[in-house]
């Protein structure tokens, strides 16, 4: 399978060479939380959360303003047709790939197929997007609780997360 890219090391060297002397400090924890799935997937409501800067084109062709509800979290209806999603992200490997297929980073069609086949029960009424930002404290104190609040409100049993 070959060796995978060490992004922490690579970005540290890269931004140092760009003149940024203080390297970004990635979050690290010794303990990892864990919650077991409580019921069969075929009865679960699944949520989808992404940092792919996903956005929505309205039925009339206009672009929706994706306003955060709190912090950097915005949400949108879970039943929007896939062709009305697109990504505004500039933070991906533009030399090696593209974001023309929404399902390669926001697998909404694949999840709907799985609901149709009975593999999963249903999808959340809302999906969430997170604007990436630098403050880990704010992510932990504001954004993550907002995603949790919305998931609870929508009765979500488990969540798929897709960083880009």
């Amino acid at each position: 399978m070959g060796d995978y890219v060490r992004y922490i090391e690579k970005t540290r060297e890269y931004y140092l060479s760009e003149g940024y002397e203080r390297p970004y400090e990635w979050a690290h924890f010794d303990e990892i939380p864990f919650t077991r799935l409580r019921k069969p997937l075929s009865q679960c409501r699944i949520g989808l959360v992404t940092t792919s800067d996903i956005a929505v084109i309205e039925a009339d062709g206009s672009k929706r303003t994706m306003e955060p509800a709190a912090g950097n979290v915005y949400s949108f209806e879970g039943d929007i047709p896939p062709e009305r999603f697109y990504s505004r992200s500039e933070h991906y490997d533009t030399h090696a790939t593209h974001l023309d297929d929404v399902n390669s980073y926001f697998p909404v069609s694949r999840l709907r197929e799985l609901v149709g086949e009975g593999r999963i029960g249903s999808l959340a009424a809302r999906f969430q997007g997170l604007y990436t930002q630098y403050s880990q404290r704010r992510t932990s104190m504001v954004d993550a609780p907002e995603v949790l609040r919305q998931c609870r409100e929508d009765g979500v049993d488990a969540v798929l997360l897709t960083p880009i």
């Binding site: 077991r36 949520g47 997170l130 992510t139 993550a144 488990a158 969540v159 960083p163």
Partner: peptide, 15 residues
């Protein structure tokens, strides 16, 4: 994104 996954999990939602 990892921080959000951890928070959901800490609060009873598998991710």
């Amino acid at each position: 994104m990892s921080l959000v996954a951890r928070h959901l999990e800490e609060n009873g939602i598998p991710t």
